[in-house]
Design a protein around this nucleic acid. Structure first.
Lengths: 229, 229
DNA sequence: ACAAAAGTGTTAGTGCTACACCCATGA
DNA sequence: TCATGGGTGTAGCACTAACACTTTTGT
């Protein structure tokens, strides 16, 4: 721990999209039923952005990431230490070097392709799983609030550009529409959505259509622009 | 220094508006001609937002502040240590406790009323003064870049709501327009500006007009909403 | 044939842009 | 009276929102 920056951590809100639901990747702490966001500390010789990539990479197995710094959570009393100790037994400011009396956290959100993720717990946790945003448990620390702020940031970004990083490389327009509807939390008009997406000139139609649905086969598209870090 | 969070600092971009120019408040380091942004560290029992308020308060004397966290600067090599040592003689990672081998900085910008500021240097500096954004010197650290990012964030925020915190309590519409033009960096149409501002319903016209100008006396306005922290 | 989803155009409204003239005031 | 800036309306354009029918496909 001595080669990490003390009192400063990363919290990663990893968004996925599956079965028309927006999900986040959570960790269950060893020997408990308590869940939290993935997170980590920053190495002394590591940029904060790189640390965030590492955190998300280690939990998902993914290397190419769409990752955005969205807020710093710096209140003195971000959460109740007594409650935390009761829930996961972590003493306040213990000397093991893993824990600190007060931590400032930099929030990053990642958009990942749900099916490509291999959820992997870290050394403090024993399960890593997707949770629907609509049915989150009461998380450790202030992580419910962090997710809320991340979602607001994601919605704001969505208004500036269509976002497809949560979908597989090839997707239909209605699938993209359902993703946007789920993020924004309200339905969109299919014709208007189609026009707006096409006007953005970010998509290109692929030669094949999606087969195997019991209905009309939709065209498939992909984003012209590639994944950013 | 031991009761401060190590390796994490605040950098404050304090914007003012004077003589139709956007200014930032800078500090000159003792015994040098080198300038930097005001900044500071976070106390162990102090929220990050409060630390940012303190930093800005100490340099300006103002208590009611419009303050926005806009970005975290977390690269390992944010600036050249050799150059820094040459310019202000600060050794890399000295033991005085004032300096650290690597610092992550949280950027805040403040909008203040130029005339109310009493520029005050801190214990490392011997001058505190306004500099026009158009004629900044080569600043210490990565502070030129931080100002650039702050300006971008300010411009973005300006598109969401009219901002008047840089002006005195009572101002004319043309004065507000010149402020917006200066921030955005391009001229605005007076009629369109007037309509948009009025449509926002944020301003109320005061009973008096501005007197003493050699021309038509403009109406004075103020914002309905009050200063936020 | 039927059920379900895909694909697509038109119209109205709203907000942004461009543009010009008269008014008030101090010098 | 003149020079300077203040104050204001209208018309086109672009983007957004509302709305329904035909096509395709598997069952």
């Amino acid at each position: 721990m001595t080669d990490y920056i003390h009192a400063l951590s990363i919290d990663g809100v990893i968004f996925g999209f599956h079965e028309n639901e927006l999900k986040v990747l959570l960790l269950r702490w060893k020997g408990t039923d308590e869940w939290s966001l993935p997170g980590g500390f920053i190495r002394m010789q590591e940029s904060v952005d790189v640390a965030a990539q590492r955190v998300v990479q280690e939990r998902t197995g993914l290397t190419q990431l769409y990752l955005r710094q969205f807020h710093v959570f710096g209140d003195v009393n971000r959460y109740d230490w007594t409650e935390l100790q009761r829930r996961i037994g972590f003493p306040h400011g213990n000397t093991e070097g893993e824990w600190w009396p007060r931590t400032v956290s930099i929030g990053y959100y990642a958009l990942v392709e749900h099916s490509k993720v291999e959820p992997t717990p870290d050394h403090l946790t024993e399960a890593c799983a997707w949770w629907s945003l609509d049915a989150l448990p009461n998380l450790l620390f202030d992580h419910n609030q962090i997710i809320e702020v991340a979602l607001q940031a994601l919605r704001k970004d969505l208004n500036e550009q269509p976002i497809g990083h949560l979908l597989p490389g090839a997707f239909s327009i209605p699938e993209l529409q359902r993703l946007h509807e789920t993020i924004l939390g309200h339905p969109l008009d299919a014709r208007n959505f189609y026009k707006k997406i096409m006007a953005s000139d970010e998509l290109e139609r692929l030669p094949e259509r999606r087969r195997g649905t019991p209905h009309k086969a939709p065209f498939l598209y992909r984003f012209r622009t590639e994944v950013t870090v």
